[in-house]
Design a protein around this nucleic acid. Structure first.
Lengths: 216, 216
DNA sequence: GCGATAACTATACAATCGTATAATTATACA
DNA sequence: TGTATAATTATACGATTGTATAGTTATCGC
């Protein structure tokens, strides 16, 4: 029973999908566009993946391995709680920056109600957020941070640290800003130093009204 | 020359558009859906508005009057610069909260590359942002805030204060969170008190390393 | 070389979209 | 009362979408 050998068209399709998805988002991704880019017959899409949902899910699953496996957050209990928190948030923020293009697109898709994007974020984000939550609680219990409501703390922290990356990326990708502003953004907002600075500022704002807070 | 009197179908269409746009966004807005909701023949759409772009622009223009005219920011030079900044940011943040549903949708549309949404935000946002920029510069020159790069300051300030509202709204609208979490969000993130708290935290983080910062 | 079998091609279907237009209707004035 | 005229209707065009399928092709074991 020897059939015709595969030309691995499914791989070509997935590669084209990886290239196109960050540009177009889920809703904007056209099957014909994918097959054309892959240099493959339209029928092969249905042959391998049946539906667009399955295809996108396959792409995101591969993205997951590229993105989330590089994000290893640990809750070590050594040292000051705030320092552990700072370390975790730093890792998370840098990871968001390094994956910002796809990440912003997924956020946009999820915001537009795209189910498959929502599911992906819902499935993969909370686990890592939870690490930060626990570190925040530790820092609060240690008296290093004020005991504000968790949603308030988390959204302020993530908003202050990560939102600059999101809006900066969106502005650059959307062509809203001229190139020299893009460079300025990258140098004053995207760098490790800028991230660290924002984290320090956020933690200072969240710090308990002690004598010396969490200044750098 | 007495013609047939109008039944003001254009008004009905605009009303339907106002109701649907925040739910669907620009791209998701279907002309047939609009006419159906307005109880009006499909042809009337082309008769009154010709194209979807014109229609959406008309809706946004009306929204503008509802939204932006209620936002009057002034740069008064009385009192501490930081206090003026705090007042302006407070107004801006409350305004964002009050218009959050449409606002988040427009952000999503713009993020998805929808031209008409981009133009609307580009045309109307910078003017109000500029007021904050100037107040930040005044506070920096007064030595009340550290002289960090403007993009860093603005994105941190707006991110920390407004991002919680945006993500909270998106989460609620997208049905990502159960109702009791929605209530929790609204009470710990959306209230005037919560906004004021975030602004204080952000300003504390941005404050010059003086003896006493901008604590409440 | 033959044939079984999976890979592949060409094409079509049904739905939805924005847009357009020819025909019909209802009115206020002559 | 007839008629000019704008408002309204019914319908269609062309493009694009995701999905499906009948038929063709190339290969390996025999």
């Amino acid at each position: 029973m020897p059939p015709r050998p595969s030309r691995n068209v499914d791989q070509l399709l997935l590669e084209a999908g990886h290239a196109l998805l960050p540009e177009t988002g889920v809703r904007g991704l056209s099957i014909r566009q994918v097959t054309e880019r892959a240099g493959v017959n339209l029928g092969m899409f249905h042959y391998h993946f049946k539906t667009k949902d399955v295809f996108v899910r396959a792409i995101l699953e591969q993205k997951y391995n590229d993105m989330f496996t590089s994000l290893k957050l640990t809750t070590k209990s050594k040292g000051a709680a705030t320092d552990n928190l700072r370390a975790a948030v730093t890792l998370l923020a840098r990871w968001g920056r390094d994956n910002r293009v796809l990440f912003v697109r997924l956020l946009g898709d999820a915001l537009a109600g795209e189910q498959v994007a929502i599911e992906f974020l819902q499935a993969n984000m909370p686990r890592h957020i939870q690490v930060v939550v626990e570190l925040v609680l530790q820092a609060q219990n240690a008296g290093e941070l004020r005991k504000l409501p968790l949603p308030q703390v988390m959204s302020f922290l993530i908003g202050g640290v990560a939102a600059p990356i999101v809006v900066g990326t969106a502005a650059i990708n959307g062509g809203l800003v001229p190139p020299f502003v893009s460079n300025q953004l990258e140098q004053t907002v995207f760098t490790d130093a800028a991230i660290a600075e924002r984290i320090d500022m956020a933690l200072t704002g969240l710090a308990a009204p002690k004598k010396s807070g969490a200044k750098k």
